[in-house]
Write a protein that binds this DNA or RNA. Structure first.
Lengths: 114, 114
DNA sequence: TCTATGTTTCCATAGTAATAGAAATACAGA
DNA sequence: TCTGTATTTCTATTACTATGGAAACATAGA
């Protein structure tokens, strides 16, 4: 779907959209906390209390944007945050805010917001 | 709508959602490039080729999430990127990826992605 | 006050997203 | 092969989002 995107800005927008829901942002947060082991689908479901099918759709979206990678482990499916994609997204945002313009000072992002 | 949000994760999700569209991400990019002067609505419209009403709706969403601030200048409305909000968002993402977990190395976001 | 210009609001529509119950599929173990 | 558990896919529903034309509103200037 996004094979070496010729128009990357749309791809970044899709990544933001993928994290633009409380459920999915919590999934990412959970997977980052559990990184690099990750969590199996059932563990995520237990933590967040989503229905199985709803969670499956959310994971689908995150997989499509390559924010989450999934690997089978017997009858379980283990999910991990894709750190390379997150790094690209963070680098994009950093570049836009701190490099292209000097709108945000690099040091300020190290602090837990004022 | 977001008065000192008691449950901040939902607020961050809303901010990501606000940037989760190519049109709106381009608007932010444009405003960051023009920072701190910003641009008036008509200039944004000319650059992006959106219909006036569509642009107005997008700006509304960005204003709601406090990513854009608007100020009247005669018959024009000048829009600026809200750097404080962007800083908070970037800090949140940085904290999740580089501090809470060590999923992404801080240095790697300085580079234009591999 | 009238006019011109910039911008929003109203209205409508097509498309997409979030949600969930039930059925189907995948795998492990007996 | 049968059974149980994990997860997805199917089907459906409700809600939201992106979009734009037309009308309304705001401001400046004549």
């Amino acid at each position: 779907m996004h094979p070496a995107d010729a128009e990357p800005i749309a791809h970044y927008a899709d990544m933001f959209a993928a994290m633009g829901t409380e459920s999915r942002l919590r999934i990412m947060q959970l997977l980052l906390s559990a990184h690099p082991e990750g969590l199996v689908v059932g563990e995520i479901q237990a933590q967040l209390g989503l229905s199985a099918s709803n969670l499956s759709h959310h994971l689908d979206k995150l997989k499509n944007e390559e924010l989450v990678a999934v690997q089978r482990e017997g009858t379980f499916l283990r999910c991990r945050a894709n750190t390379a994609a997150l790094q690209r997204l963070l680098a994009f945002l950093y570049a836009e805010c701190c490099q292209r313009s000097c709108a945000v000072s690099p040091k300020s992002i190290l602090k837990p917001a004022s």
